[in-house]
Computed example of a mutant assay.
Amino acid sequence: MTATTATARRDDTMVSSLPPRPTPQRQFSARPLGVGLVGLWLSVIVLLPLAALTVTSFGDGVSGFWDAVTAPVALASLAVTVGLAAVVALLNAAMGTLIAWVLVRDDFPGKRVVNALIDLPFALPTIVASIVLLSLYGPNSPVHVHLNATRPGLVVALAFVTLPFVVRSVQPVLIEVDREVEEASASLGASNWTTFRRVVLPTLAPAIISGTGLAFARAIGEYGSVVLIGGNIPRRTQVASQYIQQQIEIDRPVNAAAVSVALLVIAFLTLFVLRVAAGRSRRREEESS
């Protein structure tokens, strides 16, 4: 027997002793069904209402749409809404990040209660928040702080309903932050503020931007929490949602739909710009790491 024959027989024996390969099984894929259901649901819940709203807003033509949006009272309500929403978003960007930091990094009595209270605006009907704020800061304020029918009162109401967006966006990211990097920065002599600004903040920036954008979008469309405390004074405290309701009450649905479309465009553009900014910040953070 030659060496080649012996080697071949040994290879055959080894191959025959190996366990049989599992027969590939066909896996059921629900991708077409899932995509179809998602598309159908989004069409019914989102696309069709938006399309109907857009068609209604142009019921009097392009000129009618433009006249409805650029009416002095409409422009004033949009300006008040966007201005207050921007102030509230920036306020919550700072305070929401601080609250998330305290909840993640500090231990104190009642921490679980505070953590649960953050989600209260999600569960509480916004009209209830307006009643509470009116009782607390209205004409008969027990603390002698009168914010009824003032813009500061609107800021307080909007800050209440939008605070969870920033906190819940930043909190999980802060939990995952590598503290060893912070310790290394401190060991090199960096101050706490320098460590936060150069190490922690770039990591949190995408979450802060996203939460701020969501808070802004919620604020420009808010109605329940401001309906009582705001006073609905045209050109002063009347927000766009109250103006829209007023137009519906006086049987001007085209004007109401036109201002609603303007709000949708503002919200979409804001979220799009912030999403791009958050994506760039995230990519810079990945490249630096």
Rank of each mutant, 00 (worst) to 15 (best):
R198E: 13
T195Q: 02
R198A: 12
F216D: 05
I209K: 11
R179E: 09
S169C: 07
T237S: 08
I220F: 04
V200D: 05
A157M: 11
T203R: 08
P139L: 12
F165I: 10
A205Q: 10
L204Y: 04
A157G: 11
E222K: 13
L147I: 05
T195Y: 02
V161E: 04
E222I: 13
V177I: 14
G224F: 13
F122R: 07
P121H: 06
P234S: 04
S130A: 15
P152A: 07
L174K: 06
A205E: 05
G224M: 12
L201I: 03
F122H: 08
P139A: 13
F165N: 04
S210A: 13
N192W: 12
N232I: 01
T150S: 10
N192E: 14
T194Y: 03
A123C: 12
V128F: 09
I118A: 04
F122T: 08
R179Q: 10
Q246L: 14
R151Y: 04
A186H: 07
N232T: 01
R198K: 14
L154S: 04
T203P: 02
S135F: 11
P206W: 13
I118T: 01
L204P: 03
Q246F: 15
S225L: 06
A190C: 05
S169F: 10
D178T: 09
Y223I: 00
V161S: 01
G230Q: 01
P152E: 02
P125E: 07
V132L: 15
F160V: 12
G211V: 07
A184R: 06
G224N: 12
D178Q: 11
T162D: 04
I175Q: 15
L120D: 00
V181R: 15
Y223W: 09
V128P: 01
A215L: 10
S210R: 08
I208C: 06
G189L: 03
